[in-house]
């Protein structure tokens, strides 16, 4: 099976492009326009912060970019290819192979070991068990959790759990990691450690990072930030040159 979108060579096109996205929920009186026309490029290898208040539409924008949801109007391009009309199967494969997710809550399966939790995307991809174990262990090792592989996921501390979640997002070697309030559930020190890991991955492996947050400090560390208010893109700002990584220029 060849999916053109997966094999397309990374050219000059942005890794993700949103064109005039609108999305509303409900009907009639209860209708709520979450996004009212947002156009945005996400460049390969950059770190992008999407900031805004609760209910501004920033989460909706991330869901659309991550292909978890479909826009009412407008289109999403991945590597320059329109995926608005792609089949569900194709989009599932795309998410599985190219995207990684880090959520505010850990969503680790309680009864399973750390290794099994990390292997989940590989299992969904249909990777054979032996290969799955090898890659999951390698990823855990990268995040300094190799010795916890056999532990139950529930036996870990908050910071360790979030590192497991990052390992899970990383195990399928994605191009883009979507992080929705990745430090929201962590204390300041642990939060900083997790941020360091994420930005380290972006810097060292060229992984594009899309972070949804209302944490000013975290947004400051990103190459670029956009502000969403009432379903519209109201501000773009590039960070100070000192924090811009090489990735943004690639």
């Amino acid at each position: 099976m060849t999916i053109p979108l997966l094999t397309a060579p990374p050219g000059s096109a942005p890794v993700l492009r949103a064109v005039d996205l609108t999305r509303s929920y409900g009907k009639g009186q209860a209708r709520f326009d979450a996004l009212k026309g947002v156009t945005l490029d996400v460049r390969r290898g950059e770190s992008l912060a999407i900031v805004g208040r609760s209910g501004s539409g920033k989460s909706t924008l991330m869901h659309l970019l991550a292909l978890l949801d479909r826009p009412d109007a407008g289109r999403i391009e991945v590597d320059g290819g329109d995926v608005s009309r792609a089949a569900a199967r194709e989009i599932n494969t795309l998410r599985n192979q190219r995207f990684g997710f880090v959520f505010q809550q850990f969503f680790l399966t309680a009864g399973q070991t750390v290794l099994e939790n990390v292997s989940l995307p590989l299992m969904i991809a249909g990777v054979p068990p032996r290969e799955r174990k090898r890659r999951a262990l390698a990823t855990l090792d990268l995040l300094g959790l190799a010795d916890k592989a056999g532990n139950k996921a529930t036996d870990l501390s908050g910071g360790q759990k979030q590192r497991v979640v990052i390992a899970r997002a990383l195990v399928n070697e994605p191009d883009v990691i979507f992080a929705d309030e990745p430090t929201g559930n962590l204390d300041t020190v642990t939060g900083h450690q997790v941020e360091d890991i994420l930005f380290g991955l972006q810097r060292d492996r060229g992984i594009t990072l899309v972070v949804v947050t209302h944490d000013e400090e975290l947004a400051e560390r990103c190459d670029r930030r956009i502000t969403i208010a009432d379903g519209l893109l109201v501000g773009r700002a590039d960070a100070a040159p000192s924090v811009v990584t090489d990735g943004a220029d690639r």
Binding site: F101, F107, L120
Partner: peptide, 16 residues
């Protein structure tokens, strides 16, 4: 519910 949502986000198809 959460686990199902997570698996679907990670590309597991409805059929699976």
């Amino acid at each position: 519910t959460r686990e199902i949502g997570l698996m679907k986000a990670m590309g597991m198809s409805n059929g699976r």
